[in-house]
Structures are given as C-alpha cells and as structure tokens.
Amino acid sequence: MVIVLAFLTGGLYACGLYMMMRRSIVKLIMGLALLSYATNLLIFTVGGLTRAAPPLVPEGETVPPVPFADPVPQALILTAIVIGFGVLAFAVVLIEQTHRSVGTDDSNNLRGIEGES
C-alpha cells in the first residue's frame, strides 16, 4: 500500500500544481484544495503506515497495547487539516471578492489594479 500511496501523493501534487498554474482563478482554488490533501497524505505515509489499532489506552492500563498506530503524525495531520480548511475558506472568499470587484476571472488581468477600485 505504501507504494500505491506514494504514487497517489505524487499524483495529487501534480494535479494540484497544474491546477494552480492555470490562469482561471476558479481553478486556482481547486488546485489549492488538492495540494492540501496531498500534503496530509504525504505526512501520513512518510510517518509510517500500520494497520494496527488506533493509539488508545484501554481502561485500567497505562500504555496502549502494542502494536498501535503512531500518534505523532496523526496529531500533525489533524492540525494540518483544520488549518488547510481555514486557508481554503479564506482563499475562496478572497477570490470571490476579487472577482466581484474586478470583474474578471483571468489572473493575467488582475495586475495593476491596486488603488483603482
């Protein structure tokens, strides 16, 4: 599965970057979303895959029964997911507002509009 996930991560990066390099600002958002999936998956895969139980300590014990999944990358990804959403939400609204103010969805036409609207 590691090999499959490695290709999946690479593929997500490629798709995300390709979308971000489009001139359409709508595609830019899609690319951003794909890129954040890709990064989460990257951390997850590199952090060590295991089909073991989640890192939970049963009642009456002080340590989880081995083997258990590594909690450290999970904590990182949890943060990354939420922050990724914050960034995406902000970007979506910003681009929507930009489009409304400027009236174009071509990022080439966004230059030199500072101070105009």
Binding site: V2, G10, Y13, A14, L17, Y18, L42
Partner: peptide
C-alpha cells in the same frame, strides 16, 4: 513541470519509507 514535481515527491516518499 507538475508531473515532474509529482514524480519527485513519489520518489522521496518511496525512499523515506
């Protein structure tokens, strides 16, 4: 360019795991 970055990431993941 995008595919090259993707391929690079795949290679890095494979190596690091």
């Amino acid at each position: 360019v995008a595919l090259s970055v993707g391929a690079l990431i795949t290679t890095l993941v494979l190596i690091s795991t």
